Each structure stands twice: as structure tokens, then as C-alpha cells.
Measured scan of single mutants.
Amino acid sequence: RLGFCQHHDDEVLHLYCDTCSVPICRECTMGRHGGHSFIYLQE
């Protein structure tokens, strides 16, 4: 089961930031992890 983002309370962690080695949400890709390399996580 996927968890929720600690920075965006209502967002599920659907992605993994390869650059930072952390799970991220959709909102994170447009903010603090913008321009980073990421992949989609599987449930």
C-alpha cells in the first residue's frame, strides 16, 4: 500500500525520485523535485 506525502497531505506517493532517492507525490514533481529524474511506483 502506498503512503501519503509528508509535504502534501492529500497526495499519495505514486512516484520515486531517482535524483534524491525518495518516494514523492505528483505535486512534488512540480515543486521541490522539479526537473529531477523519477519513476512511477507500483502498488
Rank of each mutant, 00 (worst) to 15 (best):
H8Q: 07
D18N: 07
Y16G: 03
E27R: 13
F4K: 08
C17E: 01
G35M: 03
G31S: 11
F38H: 09
Q6G: 06
S21Q: 07
I24V: 08
H36A: 00
P23N: 04
L13M: 11
L2A: 06
V22F: 10
C5T: 00
C25G: 02
E27F: 04
I24F: 05
H14N: 15
P23C: 05
L13D: 04
S21W: 04
D18F: 03
I39E: 05
Q42S: 14
C25P: 02
R32A: 13
P23M: 05
R26P: 08
V12L: 11
M30R: 14
E27S: 12
R32G: 12
E11C: 07
R1I: 09
H14V: 07
L2I: 03
Q42A: 11
L41Q: 12
I39W: 09
C25V: 01
S37R: 12
H7Y: 05
Y40Q: 15
Q42M: 03
T19V: 07
H14C: 06
Y16Q: 14
G3W: 03
G34V: 12
C20K: 01
C20D: 02
V12Y: 06
I39H: 15
L41A: 12
M30D: 14
Q6K: 07
R32H: 12
Y40D: 15
I39P: 06
E27W: 06
L41H: 02
F38P: 08
R32L: 15
S37Y: 03
E11F: 07
C17Q: 00
M30G: 15
D10F: 05
H8M: 07
C28R: 01
L15R: 11
P23T: 09
G34D: 08
H8E: 04
Y16M: 10
R1M: 09
L13P: 05
I24D: 02
L41R: 14
R1N: 15
L15G: 03
T19R: 12
C17M: 01
P23Q: 15
I24E: 02
T29Y: 09
T29Q: 14
D9N: 04
D10E: 12
I24L: 04
G35Q: 10
E11Q: 12
Y40V: 12
L2N: 10
V22H: 15
C5N: 02
Q42F: 08
C17D: 03
Y16T: 04
L41F: 13
D9G: 12
F4E: 02
C20Y: 01
H36Y: 01
T29W: 04
Y16W: 06
R1E: 06
F4A: 04
D18K: 14
L15Y: 03
Q6D: 09
C28W: 02
P23E: 12
Q6L: 09
G34R: 12
E27D: 03
M30V: 13
C25N: 00
H7V: 06
G34K: 12
F4G: 04
T29A: 12
C25F: 01
H33W: 01
P23L: 03
F4Y: 07
F4P: 04
F4W: 03
F4N: 13
M30I: 11
S21D: 05
Y40S: 13
G35E: 11
V22A: 13
D10V: 06
Q42W: 08
D10S: 11
C17G: 02
C5G: 01
L13Q: 09
R1G: 14
R26G: 10
G31T: 11
L41V: 09
C28V: 02
R26M: 04
R26E: 06
H36R: 01
R32V: 13
S21A: 11
C28L: 02
L2Q: 09
L15I: 13
E11P: 04
F38C: 05
S37N: 10
H8Y: 03
F38Q: 07
S21G: 07
D10L: 04
C17S: 00
D18Y: 05
V12K: 12
D10M: 05
H7S: 06
G34H: 08
F38N: 08
E43R: 08
C5K: 00
T19S: 07
V22E: 15
D9T: 15
E11Y: 07
E43H: 03
C20M: 00
D18T: 10
D10Y: 07
I24A: 06
Q6A: 09
C28Y: 01
V12W: 04
C25W: 00
F4L: 06
E11I: 06
H33S: 01
V22D: 09
D10G: 13
Y40C: 13
E43V: 11
Q42E: 10
L15W: 11
I24H: 02
P23Y: 03
F38I: 10
